[in-house]
Nucleic acid binder design. Sequence first.
DNA 1: TTGCTCGGTTAGTGAGCGTTAACCTCGCCA
DNA 2: TGGCGAGGTTAACGCTCACTAACCGAGCAA
Lengths: 210, 210
Amino acid sequence: MSSRTDAPTRREQILGEAARLFAERGFHGVGVDEIGAAVGISGPGLYRHFAGKDAMLAELLVGISERLYTGGRRCLAESAGAGLGPEAALDALIDRHIDFALDDRALITLHDRELDRLRDSDRKLVRQLQRQYVELWVGVVREVHPALPEKEARASVHAVFGLLNSTPHLSRPSALPDRATTAALLHRLARGAFAAAADGARNADGAAGA
Amino acid sequence: MSSRTDAPTRREQILGEAARLFAERGFHGVGVDEIGAAVGISGPGLYRHFAGKDAMLAELLVGISERLYTGGRRCLAESAGAGLGPEAALDALIDRHIDFALDDRALITLHDRELDRLRDSDRKLVRQLQRQYVELWVGVVREVHPALPEKEARASVHAVFGLLNSTPHLSRPSALPDRATTAALLHRLARGAFAAAADGARNADGAAGA
DNA sequence: TTGCTCGGTTAGTGAGCGTTAACCTCGCCA
DNA sequence: TGGCGAGGTTAACGCTCACTAACCGAGCAA
């Protein structure tokens, strides 16, 4: 009984600020002194909590990949457990991902920006989790849209991730409508994209001209 | 009579390699020696062509922003000149952006990743060009889908950029279908996304519940 | 020939930064 | 009360890296 939005431990506090700073200025663009200052201690004090700057990034990236993947699995399990069909499952996956993109913008940004700064083993782990997460989506998308070939489904999933993850790239978030409207809009965009991909694949099936 | 895929000048060669390297490992992750080595000269020889590392990044980012914006304007002008409607104009914009995303993957990656490494004046310029480019799209999208409110149209355009720019993020491009198929797929995804955004906006107009 | 510019070279410098060392001070348990 | 570990501090080290200095050889014009 201690983890749920209790007072954040020092480690968590550091990770949060590090994520924000890394997302803002890039891993190499942020010094340890800055991270320390952001949590009120200075510089090398961080080494009481982490082995080094790399370790912070690794923990962030592995953490988010795991949360995305296990969260996605839980989504599908719950949806199946409730006897719902693939449409509802896809909706649930999309909504969960949108929550992530809107709530943890910094982490989303890091996720596809700083992956190659990791040690080989960590990078492999993150890549594997990402792949599994993608395959989760591909499976559901192809249940909803059986006409879509697997390769195109996978490319579509990647593209929709780009779509859903686009809001953190905005310079000033004030340009967005309120959260609920934005979430609904992103959801519609994603569903519409998948539907169009499948539609086009069906039409192009026999007639591959203009 | 000297620029069109003639032998690339040294400057262009350097810029090309720098773009590739920056995209791969980030601006701070690449040393000048590496860039030099990539074009066969070593290290400080670059300073005969550029004032510094920053200048290369600036030229790359300003260059791509300008090409996107002026390219988009030309698209619309040609489309209007041919007496075509907004649907065709939107298709042309999308296709042009897809060409960009597929041909200049490195530049697309840099474009939204390293913008804050620039001097203030350059960053302002790039931001302004980006804004103008977005507004180009917003105008056309709202002609095609008048039901879509401006704020949502703008957010949708940003999201679709994320979608179209997603392919460079792929670890290995071999996962994609061939270029023509990919381009067609991306086009369908983008159009489908816009259509769904507009559709939902129309439906949600009077009934804002579940 | 002379001499200048263009585009290289290698050596060196100075700053920034991740990391470590050495030390200090609470709070707590025996 | 005495010790000790957890979590800080400042100082310093060493490496990396952008950039500069000094030099050089080809091409070419006068």
